[in-house]
């Protein structure tokens, strides 16, 4: 088992109080597993992704633990966490287009980064990996501004995985790309795993249809809590949580003419995480809600590898 997250709580400090963006999240990630992490904006998926590598200044680790390859990650201790970053946990950020220092040639930047981490700079291996993602080695002698958006994205992917991390977090990596580049990026992620450059992966996204193509499992979050985790096929074909069902129903399907059938949105909006309601957080928007939903449903395994937090599903 690569990753074990246990009751993780990370809050944001704001002037109006603590925003409970990640409120008791527990799950595991197997060796070689690619997990899609989905949910709407503000559900805590990016917070979870960041928590596993680097809390930003407003984030506070309130409770829970993270274990990677049997080692506890000191996520609250920025300095001690450094030892694990890049070597064991790595990140492909949301902002790949601007992730490279504009005033350094890419090759030199990579070399300086590796040297500063005490890792050897192996130019051969670096070139091999650039070829793997379809980039020529000229890239190393160029400045970021000389690359297209897709090239920058692939460069960042190569840099992030250079030290063969156990866990790679890909945060909304396809959001800024056109459809064909999206597909290429998704295929590359798959290839990284298949070539064992990366042991396992969390792909944070709001694009379920894309992550479905590469993910082994999909985990759905809602309002700072887990809603459902299951193999990708199950999530798409037989979701059990009413939120997952609504999410899947809101996706367009190929071949369906939407002049005949209106695309379903999810009515209502998620609760404020500043002071979230007791019980199931989806209650107010849920068509199936009943009395029992006043108490919080546990995240329970209902079948092999399929966990749901809903009283109706248990």
């Amino acid at each position: 088992m690569t990753l074990k997250v246990d009751d993780l709580r990370v809050y944001y400090r704001t002037l109006r109080g603590e925003v409970k963006a990640l409120d008791g999240v527990s799950f595991t990630l197997a060796d070689g597993e690619i997990m899609g992490l989905a949910g709407e904006s503000g559900c805590g998926k990016s917070t979870l992704g960041k928590s596993l590598i680097r809390l930003d200044q407003r984030m506070k680790h309130v409770g829970g633990s993270v274990e990677l390859d049997g080692q506890v990650l000191p996520i609250a201790d920025d300095r001690r966490m450094n030892a694990h970053r890049f070597f064991e946990v790595s990140l492909i950020p949301q902002y790949s287009m601007s992730a490279l220092n504009p005033t350094r040639k890419i090759g030199r930047m990579i070399e300086e980064l590796l040297r500063s981490r005490g890792a050897p700079f192996d130019r051969k291996e670096l070139e091999r990996r650039l070829h793997l993602v379809g980039l020529s080695t000229d890239v190393l002698d160029r400045y970021p501004i000389e690359l297209s958006g897709g090239m920058k994205q692939r460069t960042v992917m190569v840099i992030s995985t250079l030290l063969d991390p156990s866990l790679l977090i890909a945060d909304e990596v396809t959001s800024a790309l056109d459809v064909s580049s999206q597909r290429a990026v998704a295929q590359t992620l798959l290839e990284f795993r298949d070539r064992h450059l990366v042991k396992s992966m969390i792909v944070v996204t709001h694009d379920l249809s894309l992550v479905y193509q590469i993910a082994d499992t999909i985990m759905v979050m809602y309002a700072g809590k887990l809603a459902e985790k299951a193999p990708a096929k199950t999530i798409v074909n037989a979701p059990r949580h009413p939120y997952t069902q609504a999410l899947i129903n809101s996706l367009p399907e190929v071949g369906v003419r939407y002049s005949e059938r209106r695309l379903q949105g999810i009515p209502g909006s998620p609760p404020s995480l500043l002071n979230p309601p007791k019980g199931c957080r989806f209650r107010d928007r849920c068509p199936l809600a009943f009395d029992k939903c006043e108490t919080e449903p546990p995240f329970t395994e209902i079948a092999q590898g399929h966990s749901v937090a809903c009283w109706k599903a248990i």
């Binding site: 680097r54 030892a83 694990h84 890049f86 790595s90 490279l100 980064l113 960042v156 840099i159």
Partner: peptide, 8 residues
């Protein structure tokens, strides 16, 4: 931020 995330 990216460099920070990679522990630079």
């Amino acid at each position: 931020n990216y460099l920070g995330a990679l522990g630079a």
